[in-house]
Design a protein around this nucleic acid. Structure first.
Length: 418
DNA sequence: ATAGGGATATGC
DNA sequence: GCATATCCCTAT
């Protein structure tokens, strides 16, 4: 930072980088995007939009981890849409679908009573579909998709027709909402690419390499460098969820064997490699230390520490790694790494010698003939999605509520097959 | 997840 | 008994 003469705004830059670091850490569902951002000094530059998107994605991920899909999620999705508009990028299909199914799920929550009149379904329709989505329509938002309009009409119908109400009530909307949201998050993380810290590290690494090469008389063309940087950013960014950033800085050179241009050069410069890894490791230790402090101050009165450690981190490997490194940085200054101890896995019972059926065969589901309406829905669906029965069912979940994907396939077979 | 074979229900 | 529709099981 100092080298780049950014002293004036150095706090801001630092804050942004640290914020970005925390927001991108997957194993940390205790960091909340919007509060973290609002705690920072307000800056409104272009890269700030990127940071805001990162914060929004963190919030969505957190909600998904907790398993909550509520109207707060709709708020977040609307914010994401606005941010995308600011970035002048297109509103993607995944965002539209996610919004649509989330809205449906939010309405479904109020359909727990058996009949319409007993509950708050009417209120939900009013609040979510009339007011909220009415606003979207008002500003001609791209979030208003065909899918969304279809749901709107289906739900309005359900208000009048008890039969349709029942069918929607029994549809597993939640599953669809969650998968669309996951898909959205995945796409967006990929689109964001690598973190500021990481791209800065790459820039400086390449710069150093370049100056060395010139000294050695290799003389790689200068324009090469930018190309390499850009290309890598794209590729890495799209193939990755969000990992620990610092680790990546250290690993930039290590797990990068695919890039032929650099492969040979690396072997000639082991010292550069080593230095960078050391710096990255130190930085990581510092950040872990900071995080440990934050955790200690936010976790008061929530749960006993031990339980926290185990329940919050998703994978046991990460858990172990974090703990040992944290101990290193606070305890003795030796760089000795403690081997993780993992429990011996339970042996799986996979003997193929005998396949016994423990459960008695299930009673056959009562037969129901296909109504012309259902057949029409099936035809429409196949016209649009082909033989992707999952999509066909989703294209009209209300009419096809009583039919499984296999049923659709079977019906199509006896309509046109063989 | 999907395709195909097969079992069971329905209608004549 | 036969044809057709629906539902179930399982290999890919």
């Amino acid at each position: 930072i100092f080298d780049h003469g950014l002293c004036d705004s150095k706090t801001e830059v630092m804050e942004k980088w640290v914020a970005e670091f925390f927001l991108r850490r997957q194993q940390n569902p205790r960091v909340y995007g919007s509060p973290l951002l609002s705690a920072l000094t307000p800056v409104d530059s272009d890269d700030c939009v990127k940071l805001k998107i990162t914060a929004v994605l963190r919030d969505i991920s957190n909600s998904l981890i907790r398993g909550t899909v509520d109207e707060g999620m709709l708020d977040i999705l609307e914010i994401l849409e606005k941010l995308m508009l600011q970035e002048r990028s297109v509103i993607m299909g995944s965002l539209k679908s996610a919004y649509c199914w989330t809205a449906a799920e939010c309405t479904l929550r109020f359909m727990w009573p058996v009949t319409v009149s007993d509950g708050f379904f009417g209120d939900a329709l009013e609040r979510i579909w009339k007011k909220r989505i009415g606003m979207l329509k008002g500003r001609e938002s791209d979030l208003v998709s065909h899918e969304l309009l279809k749901w709107e009409s289906d739900l309005n119908e359900a208000f009048e027709e008890p039969e349709i109400y029942r069918k929607i009530r029994e549809t597993n909307i939640r599953y669809n909402a969650i998968s669309h949201l996951s898909q959205l998050v995945k796409e967006q993380w990929a689109l964001l690419g690598c973190s500021s810290l990481e791209s800065e590290a790459r820039k400086r690494l390449l710069k150093r390499k370049d100056s060395r090469n010139r000294g050695n008389g290799f003389g790689r063309a200068g324009d090469n460098i930018d190309n390499i940087g850009v290309r890598r950013e794209g590729r890495n960014g799209s193939s990755r969820e969000n990992d620990n950033d610092v680790e990546e800085v250290g690993g930039v050179e290590k797990h990068d064997g695919a890039d032929k241009v650099n492969e040979q050069e690396q072997e000639h410069e082991p010292s550069l490699n080593k230095g960078d890894i050391t710096v990255a490791r130190e930085l990581k230790d510092f950040l872990l230390e900071i995080q440990r402090l934050i955790d200690a101050s936010t976790r008061q009165g929530q749960e006993p520490d031990d339980a926290m450690e185990q329940s919050n981190d998703v994978t046991p490997q990460h858990d172990e790694a974090n703990r040992t490194e944290a101990e290193d940085s606070e305890g003795t200054s030796s760089s000795r790494r403690v081997r993780p101890h993992l429990p011996t896995p339970e042996p799986l019972n996979v003997s193929p010698l005998k396949k016994v059926r423990l459960e008695r065969p299930r009673p056959r589901r009562p037969m129901k003939f296909w109504t012309p309406e259902e057949v029409a829905a099936l035809r429409e669906g196949v016209k649009e999605f082909g033989k992707s029965w999952k999509d066909v069912k989703n294209s009209n979940p209300v009419v096809l509520a009583d039919r499984s994907e296999v049923d659709l396939k079977d019906k199509w077979r006896n309509l046109f097959g063989r």
